[in-house]
Design a protein around this nucleic acid. Structure first.
Length: 900
RNA sequence: GGGAGUUUAGCUCAGCUGGUUCAGAGCAUCUGCCUUACAAGCAGAGGGUCACUGGUUCGAACCCAGUAACUCCCA
């Protein structure tokens, strides 16, 4: 049977994924084993797999597979998020294509379309995750709008309202005038935009009539270059939003601003509409920004709103929900805000109230979904009080019950939790859980699970038994999507409806959560709050925060930039295992990763390397009559393997996945392939002895186990090859148990390290002297260190192509020599040595050693070092000195011999 | 404006409690090899003023202060 020259992922991936599914290896039910649980951060149901998911889910799968192989009952719960705004946008777009407008539909009609869309297109992403090898328990797949999950949302709402933690109020929200809904902070994308800064004059009352065109003197301060903007007739403000001047409630100046002392207590007139507003004083105003006079527009700016509250200013909202000006603006009514901005600039200019226009760069918020400029807007919304719930959630992290990885996020987390704002939980959408509030004819409302209960409540509340269902109107809004996802770790196990069920008691709290730092507050923090509120326990023990996937240039990967490769294409090209390895190679926890396809290439090459090692072993013929010549090699690799196993374990314990992978990579590529297999490899077409063969096969099988979490498909494929023996149907790599760490012969490992240096030196000599590897050489040595090189003779001879290997008591004159550890090695060559070059080389080495010795001696001769340093440090320094002196002796002797 | 973080080889990153031979890895680079597992490979080599300036210390990539550049979060 011929084996392909390279590993072919396409022939194995689907095959083994179906096999795993068929044998229920991903399935988890509570049993006596220790559970290991991860709940997936539910991707948007509208989502398609991008590089961020790829990274995130690779990490989760590695953790889950490893836990499974450590004998735990591993459960990875998958699912999707209903993503109100994103999905509603998709559905509206779909309807538009069919010529249907949302406003012509009733709510139930619209929702029917939405469900239709969800059934048809939703959850593609889960299918894509299977390509990656994700070993989720698919039978547990949940959706945040599943009946029981929605019920949990409603119950939670009622519960929190009863506790007084949910209230209704007017607040400044991020308003999307295109989607006509409030959006959450994280759905606002801030971008730097080129804008204009308009300088507008307001006339001061009592200082003359607000007549345009009156002579105004502006006094420039030569020293500072500042222009004094307030004359006795006018003051000037700078704004990027001149269309909102009609909503101004005051002008604010800093009380310490000496330029404007004369304005204290005055009032001014808004240009064009001549409404009179006060000048107020507040240190909030920065004196050196703009003119130092700030227009205060409480209805259209968050900071102004807060300032307005402080100073009891009226709120004049001049914008409609769609971003056009309303009649309160008095002028330009019905114009869109941006058209109005241009027009008002012209009007102001004509009125002589516009003194100048400057270019200005600033951050502006855009709606993630519609890309409309976000308008800060006051509106009646539902809010969830945060401060009470934030306290215990902060404590979990501070006292280490919930560990953030990496720890640097603790500070950020604390900062946020200590300054937490109430959470706007209502959204002006239809897709989602409708707020369980019913309004009564008198304007009051009741909160209830359904309309029947609401009616009962209403009758009690109004003491009017005549009320009917027709008198009640349910709040049309839905709750924020995060208001369902914060319950996720509990709701996926049905922990609300049935709080004592076997699943939740077994799987909760979960072990690890793997997510992006961007949603640490919006999701992670709130899950901890909900976990505490509803279960009295944090929902997970560790939070692994991944970085953002960026391109080579450091730009965030995004659809609009087109700099994101399609993960499925990558899998197609490099194989799922190759891509998984590629993702992990460049992903330190919590740091962004600069992704480049070359990492996937490296992953693919690694898969190929393993494949070829397998091919080599598989090709060997066994001759049972042969003695085992490889005892040392076998013991050495066994020790190295155990040592590496420890390193890998240690890396995993610290969630250093990319280092765990690198340790595995080097174990396989360097130790196993480059050294061990070369040591034991029989001459071409010669048979191998039985012991070496079976041990090597055993080693290979152990390597497959260690590799499996990273490279599940390749390892499963090789696991089932006849090379590794007969397999029962359920004897699969995915459920194999990781080997335990066995004995480690550290002396052997360090001696082999010296042997490796010897071999490297021999090869180096071949390279520099242009001696073919095929040409056998003689090697003799003078041991000063006590290492018994005779036991490594077979290895050195084989890998160095040494025909004669002998110990000598005296140096070999005229031979090429090198030092390994403190031992001298000699290779006699037919060609003559170049004494000049040799002298130069030795001279350099001597110089280096002298310098080194000097620094060591300086330390050892320093009384303070001797009295302060730890004994083991002193011992190390002494050994360094002894070694250096020994080497120096050899080199000096060589120099004498060469008569340099 | 407030907060957090980063800066070590061409690139991506390790470097733990300050102390192994004046800093390690992978990739990339260079040189030589189509050596019967693998050219997606093998062998070897080169490459760093640890951002900068001071300080503490017997000793600093590591601790402290300042400076600069970049990134993120919040406003």
């Amino acid at each position: 049977m011929s084996i392909s020259k390279t590993y072919l992922p396409k022939e194995t991936e689907d095959k083994w994924y179906s096999y795993w599914l068929k044998h229920d290896f991903f399935k988890s039910v509570p049993d006596e084993r220790e559970p290991y649980t991860i709940v997936i951060p539910p991707p948007n149901v509208t989502g398609v797999l991008h590089m961020g998911h790829m990274l995130n889910n690779t990490i989760q799968d590695v953790l889950v597979r490893r836990a499974r192989m450590k004998g735990k009952n591993a459960c990875w719960v998958p699912g999707t998020d209903h993503a109100s705004i994103a999905t509603e946008a998709k559905v509206v777009a779909m309807l538009k294509e069919r010529g249907i407008s949302k406003k012509d539909l009733t709510r139930p009609e619209f929702l029917a379309y939405a469900w239709e869309w969800k059934e048809k297109y939703g959850g593609i992403i889960l299918e894509q995750l299977k390509k990656l090898g994700a070993s989720c328990d698919w039978d547990r797949t949940k959706f945040t709008m599943d009946e029981d999950l929605s019920e949990a949302v409603i119950d939670t709402f009622i519960h929190l309202h009863k506790k007084g933690l949910i209230y209704r109020g007017v607040r400044m929200v991020n308003w999307d005038p295109q989607g006509k809904t409030a959006v959450s902070d994280e759905e606002v994308i801030r971008k730097e935009v080129n804008q204009k800064l308009y300088y507008i004059k307001y006339s001061v009352a009592g200082d003359g009539l607000p007549v345009a065109g009156e002579e105004v003197s502006s006094v420039a301060d030569e020293a500072t270059g500042n222009t004094q903007h307030a004359t006795h007739n006018y003051l000037t403000i700078a704004t990027t939003r001149p269309e909102t001047i009609m909503a101004d409630a005051a002008i604010c100046i800093n009380p310490n601003d000496e330029r404007y002392l004369h304005l204290h207590g005055k009032t001014v007139f808004i240009p064009l509409i001549n409404r009179e507003i006060p000048v107020i004083l507040d240190e909030y105003v920065t004196m050196d920004f703009g003119t130092g006079c700030l227009k205060v527009t409480p209805a259209h700016d968050l900071n102004d709103y807060e300032l307005g509250q402080k100073h009891n200013l009226p709120v004049i909202d001049i914008l409609n929900d769609d971003g056009t000006l309303n009649e309160k603006a008095q002028i330009l009514v019905g114009e869109d805000r941006f058209a109005a901005r241009k027009k008002i600039a012209v009007l102001l200019d004509e009125a002589g109230a516009l003194t100048k226009v400057e270019d200005y760069k600033s951050q502006i918020g855009f709606s993630e979904r519609t890309d409309a400029v976000i308008e800060p807007k006051l509106s009646m919304q539902w809010f969830c009080k945060m401060s009470e719930m934030a306290k215990p959630a902060l404590d979990y992290v501070l006292n280490g019950e919930v560990k953030l990885i990496p720890e640097k996020f603790i500070n950020t987390y604390r900062h946020w939790m200590e300054n937490v704002r109430d959470w706007n939980i209502s959204r002006q959408l239809w897709w989602g859980q409708q707020i369980p509030a019913w309004y009564l004819p008198n304007g009051e409302f009741v909160i209830a699970k359904n309309i029947e209960e609401a009616l009962e409540e209403a009758k009690l509340k109004t003491k009017n038994p005549q009320l009917t269902i027709q008198d009640l109107a349910q709040d049309p809004d839905v709750v924020d999507t995060w208001f369902s996802s914060w319950l996720w770790p509990i709701s996926v196990f049905n922990g609300f409806k049935d709080p004592e069920n076997a699943d939740i008691n077994y799987y909760y709290p979960t072990n690890d959560l793997v997510t992006a730092p961007e949603i640490l507050f919006f999701w992670v923090a709130r899950m901890i709050m909900a976990g505490h509120e509803f279960r009295g326990q944090a929902p997970f023990k560790n939070v692994y925060l991944t970085g953002i996937v960026r391109d080579k240039l450091g730009r965030k990967m995004s659809k609009s930039l087109g700099n994101s490769p399609d993960p499925l294409d990558l899998i197609e090209q490099y194989g799922a295992d190759g891509v998984r390895v590629g993702m992990l190679l460049c992903s330190p926890a919590g740091n962004d990763l600069m992704f480049d396809v070359s990492y996937c290439e490296q992953g693919r090459n690694f898969a190929n390397k393993i494949w070829n090692a397998f091919k080599l072993i598989k090709g060997w013929e066994v001759d049972a009559s042969l003695a085992n010549p490889n005892e040392i090699a076998i013991e050495w690799f066994g020790s190295r393997f155990n040592q590496a196993l420890g390193e890998i374990e240690d890396n995993f314990a610290q969630y250093r996945l990319s280092e765990a992978l690198m340790a595995t990579y080097k174990l396989v590529w360097d130790d196993f392939c480059a050294w061990y297999l070369e040591m034991i490899k029989p001459v071409y077409l010669q048979p191998i002895d039985k012991v070496t063969y079976t041990t090597t096969v055993q080693y290979f099988e152990n390597i497959l186990k260690v590799l499996h979490p990273f490279m599940p498909f390749l390892t499963e494929e090789l696991w089932h090859d006849e090379l590794l023996g007969e397999r029962a149907e359920k004897d699969c790599c995915i459920v194999a148990q990781l080997p335990n760490i066995g004995e480690i012969n550290t002396q052997l490992i360090s001696e082999v390290e010296i042997v490796q240096i010897v071999l490297t030196q021999i090869r180096n000599i071949r390279n520099t002297k242009q001696i073919s590897p095929k040409e056998a050489l003689e090697l003799s040595y003078k041991s000063n260190s006590g290492v018994n090189y005779q036991q490594y003779q077979a290895i050195i001879s084989k890998l160095g192509n040494i025909s004669q290997f002998s110990e000598v008591d005296d140096k070999v004159i005229g031979a090429v020599n090198f030092i390994a550890s403190t031992d001298e090695f000699f290779i006699p060559l037919s060609q003559n040595l170049d004494p000049v070059a040799e002298c130069a080389r030795l001279g350099k080495e001597k110089e280096y050693l002298l310098g080194f010795l000097k620094s060591v001696n300086a330390k050892l001769g320093n009384e303070r070092f001797m009295s302060n340093a730890k004994p083991e440090v002193i011992e190390i320094e002494q050994r360094k000195r002894a070694d250096a002196e020994a080497k120096l002796n050899i080199i000096e002797q060589n120099l004498i011999d060469l008569a340099c």
